[in-house]
């Protein structure tokens, strides 16, 4: 039987020219059958399995990238907020420290002023007391000088005239 088909094939090949192969319609049923079968299989696999898998991967990557970008934006916002908070805190601290320094300075100034006032008062009091003492000493000295002059005058008169002058007279004379 194989011999029979072989001779048939050779006689056909030798007998009349083989048709242009793509236009050989006897092969069409097989061609279409296998095309439909393989194309359908490929379609179902790509539609149901490969397509969704690739789509999932691409979508996952896109969402991961978007998520990362969101996170980065959030982190930047957080950093900005923290930096702003830091600035506020810094300004507050600076203001507080300035106020404290000012307060302290004023306190010290007040203390200094008080101490100065106290010292001034003491000094004034001491000066006044000293002035009074000086005045008293001067008065005493003046009295001593008058007494001495009177005594000297009595003594001079006594020596020159031999008269005794009363103390009151002598004092009057010395003063006058």
């Amino acid at each position: 039987m194989a011999e029979e088909t072989a001779t048939h094939a050779t006689t056909e090949a030798a007998g009349h020219a083989t048709p242009f192969p793509p236009f050989d319609t006897t092969t069409f049923p097989s061609q279409i059958f296998w095309l439909v079968l393989t194309f359908a299989v490929l379609f179902v696999v790509l539609w149901r399995v490969a397509g969704p898998r690739i789509h999932t991967v691409i979508a996952d990557r896109r969402s991961a990238i978007n998520k990362a970008i969101e996170a980065a934006k959030q982190a930047r916002a957080d950093a900005d907020a923290a930096s702003a908070g830091y600035d506020v805190a810094l300004a507050g601290a600076r203001a507080r420290s300035n106020a404290l320094a000012e307060e302290t300075r004023q306190g010290i100034n007040a203390e200094i002023a008080k101490a100065k006032a106290g010292a001034d008062a003491q000094a004034t009091a001491a000066m006044t007391a000293a002035d009074a003492r000086i005045e008293a000493s001067r008065g005493a000295a003046k009295a001593h000088v008058a007494d001495a002059a009177r005594d000297a005058a009595i003594a001079i008169v006594a020596r020159l005239t031999g008269e005794t002058v009363s103390a009151d007279d002598a004092a009057k004379a010395v003063k006058g």
């Binding site: 790509l46 490969a50 898998r53 991967v57 996952d60």
Partner: peptide, 14 residues
């Protein structure tokens, strides 16, 4: 082609 397009892609491999 079907096995290539299916197997080389691992879901989750970013």
């Amino acid at each position: 082609s079907a096995s290539f397009l299916t197997l080389v892609v691992k879901p989750g491999r970013l």
